[in-house]
């Protein structure tokens, strides 16, 4: 059992990273750290996808006629290219909002922001 888990260590790493990222988004009280948490969650998913397409002895997926080869599945990698683009745009948008919030409140702590909000009302 343990050997099987160790042999598939990229999946284990992906799951651990996913949990770390999830925790960071929910528990950290700093907007930038929350954005980093989102990035960790997304990277964990990318790792999971790419690991599922990888073969340790695989060749690059360029097939020449007449040559038989076990090649790496290119589809997950191609999907994750799109995933990375999505991740970058979400990060950019979140950072832009964080900059605005810092301009409004002078802090990046959501609890402090909530305090300031009730104070102003």
């Amino acid at each position: 059992m343990l050997l099987r888990v160790l042999a598939n260590y990229p999946y284990l790493v992906a799951v651990v990273l996913f949990a770390i990222g999830f925790y960071t988004v929910l528990a950290r009280s700093n907007l930038i750290k929350k954005i980093i948490g989102i990035n960790i969650v997304q990277s964990a998913t990318f790792l999971f996808f790419i690991a599922s397409g990888n073969l340790r002895s695989g060749t690059p997926p360029i097939v020449e006629p007449g040559v038989a080869a076990t090649y790496v599945n290119p589809l997950p990698t191609a999907l994750m290219l799109t995933g990375i683009v999505v991740s970058v745009s979400v990060t950019a948008f979140a950072l832009a909002l964080a900059v605005k919030l810092y301009g409004y409140y002078g802090t990046l702590d959501p609890d402090r922001i909530a305090q300031l909000r009730t104070h102003r009302q």
């Binding site: 989102i38 969650v41 997304q42 996808f49 979140a94 919030l101």
Partner: peptide, 29 residues
């Protein structure tokens, strides 16, 4: 100020939700 903060909160949780969906798609694939 309120709308920006609301949008940030929305974006974070929406991104977490999409992360879960994507992971699920990965498992299915």
């Amino acid at each position: 100020e309120e709308a920006t903060e609301a949008a940030f909160k929305y974006l974070m949780l929406a991104a977490l939700g999409s992360g879960l969906v994507l992971f699920s798609i990965g498992l299915l694939y």
